[in-house]
Amino acid sequence: MAWILIISCLFFLWIFSLCKILIPSSSPLRNSFLKAGVHEKRNVLLVIAHPDDESMFFTPTINFLTSRGHNLHILCLSVGNADGKGDTRKRELYQACAVLKVPIQQVKTLDHPDLQDGFGELWNHSLLAKIIEDEIISHSINLIITFDNYGVSGHCNHRDVHHGVCKLIYDTSQRDVEAWELVSTNILRKYSGPVDIWFSVLGVMQHSSGRMHCLVNEHCRRSFLAMAQHKSQWVWFRKLFVALSSYTYMNTLRKIKLGACEVTAPHNYMACEIN
């Protein structure tokens, strides 16, 4: 009987949290992200490592930006060729971005020999910084969004992308470009679905300086439709991930503070202090 009560309570909490997300008027958050420039449309660059990162992790952010008219560009630093499906995955990325209302001409995918998909593939941070800087200059980018130093799943390519962005901001003249990171959570929060909104709200409330924002997904169904375009990756456990992942329902973004960065020799590892 006790287990039935616990399961019923969890089910009710899940449904209640989902309603908070799906019904804008009942949302516990009044988001102020980019509110200062309400009349100014920003040129934003989302930097990801693989095709499907945008659909698995960043759809709340993408939906937030596109629905408010910001000019979003996506830079994917590999074609995800670990299983020899690079060409297929590249096409799937463009299809997913079409679902997410990102113009195809604003999506760029690289297949650089030194930036190949794989858990054992270490990416050079100086090379990443140079590539990202070229995109910033080409599209007059003034805001970057990417992974944090754990990269949601701990994938080394995700982590390297973060450190490449840090190196760019710290080492070059692009320090006036804002850089924001997607906050990684522990495994319980990661698979708590919409319930994580309450933890996210508490986290944001502890950062009153405006350096952390929770973006609620205004089009949850679009997340599933976008990920379904990645047919080569749309296997049962990824379907479960999209359904159960808190990243489907909200993103917490944190501004990267480059107050104390350190570069070590072997792999150009950079650690950035986060506020």
Rank of each mutant, 00 (worst) to 15 (best):
L18P: 03
N275E: 15
V177A: 01
Q229G: 06
N268W: 07
W123I: 12
V44S: 00
R254Y: 02
K255D: 06
L45A: 00
D148K: 07
R68M: 12
R30S: 15
L22I: 07
L75F: 01
H230D: 01
F11N: 13
D176C: 15
S27F: 05
Y191C: 08
G193M: 04
A243G: 03
L128D: 00
Y170G: 14
A129G: 06
R30H: 13
P194V: 05
T109M: 05
G203A: 06
V38D: 09
H158W: 07
E92W: 02
A98S: 14
L215F: 09
A265S: 06
D111Y: 04
K101Q: 13
V263R: 14
L143W: 02
I256T: 07
T66S: 09
M56E: 07
I7P: 10
N268D: 14
I6S: 12
V102E: 01
L34K: 03
W180S: 00
I48H: 03
A96S: 05
C9T: 09
I21R: 00
R221W: 02
N71G: 01
W236A: 11
I104G: 11
F33S: 02
L22E: 15
S246V: 07
L110W: 05
K190W: 01
L128T: 09
W123K: 15
I137C: 15
G193W: 06
L75A: 09
L93M: 07
N157V: 09
F11D: 08
H213V: 00
P24F: 08
N124D: 06
L253E: 00
R238M: 03
G203E: 07
Y191E: 02
Y249K: 14
V177I: 05
H267R: 13
H162Q: 08
E135Q: 10
T109H: 12
N81G: 14
D160N: 05
W123M: 05
N268I: 09
K41F: 04
A271S: 14
H219D: 15
C166L: 12
S184K: 04
K108S: 11
M250Q: 12
D171I: 12
L225F: 01
L110I: 04
P113N: 08
F58K: 03
I145H: 01
C97F: 08
K239V: 03
R159E: 11
T146P: 01
S32A: 14
S55L: 06
Y249N: 12
A260T: 10
A96D: 03
M1E: 10
D160A: 11
E181Q: 12
P28Q: 03
K130D: 07
D83N: 07
K101H: 13
K35N: 11
W123D: 04
E218A: 15
G193D: 10
G120W: 13
S32P: 04
V195S: 05
A260D: 12
F57R: 04
V165L: 02
S55C: 05
D134S: 08
S32D: 15
G37C: 07
